[in-house]
Design a protein around this nucleic acid. Sequence first.
DNA 1: AGACACCTGTAT
DNA 2: ATACAGGTGTCT
Length: 278
Amino acid sequence: MPELPEVETVRISLEPLILGSRILEIREQTAGVLYNWTGQPDVAGGRTVTGLRRRGKYLLMDLGPDLLLVAHLRMTGQFKYEEQPPVLRKHDHIVLSLEKPGTGPVWLVFHDTRRFGRIWLLRPDQASQIAGLSALGPEPLDPQLDSETLRLRLARHSRTTLKAALLAQTVVAGLGNIYVDESLFLSGINPQRLAGSLSLEEADRLLTCMQKILQAAVNARGTSVKDYVDALNVRGSFQYQLQVYGRAGQPCTQCGKPLAKTRLAGRTTVYCPQCQPV
DNA sequence: AGACACCTGTAT
DNA sequence: ATACAGGTGTCT
């Protein structure tokens, strides 16, 4: 489900709800979802939520200076915030109970239909042991990121397609199937192009378009194709602005020709053969 | 670099 | 019954 804009929206929606709250307990309803790498069974109890951050598609919850909760929602993971004791439903796997100053007990339920999502509890210095997290490329919305850096990082994947390179998370962090297709369409660049073949001018266009799309999607509170909702169960609205994702066969919004569909890096890829020539 | 696996639900 | 889905770790 969630790519950078959706994870960022979860972060934004969750922050005012739980920042400063004290964790009472973390309860596992399903085994194999929560990884506690600290070696201490009830390590989170009594800790205060001191920060909520995002890196790529990872959500990081600071629990004081020496404990960190890291979550990856993968395809269908959700955090549901509740102010009443939650009635647990199918696919509710982890329940955090917290004491919120001035409010009383509140709950955060990790729900995940496909059970691909993961939560880690670890010391901050152990975060580098989460391979996917430590291998992430730069944040695409970081104003420091420049097009020459993007071009060089893409060039490290010179023998694969742009689509595959942008999905890899190591070139740039946080894009998934939706936002890669949308960014390439807005850039007018074909997804089958070799990742090492971009000119500096094209890399510059790709970076600008990628940032434009991602920022617009964050502003729209993410894309809700199907499952995705934020911590308060609110859907996003960027699905109404999608130009190519999910629109194969429909007319291109720029030229009117039918959008093409292919399979790249194992993922359905939609593009306009006219506006994104090889 | 690409195929397959991990899961469950939904659409055809 | 089969194919496919906002992802990624592991195996070839």
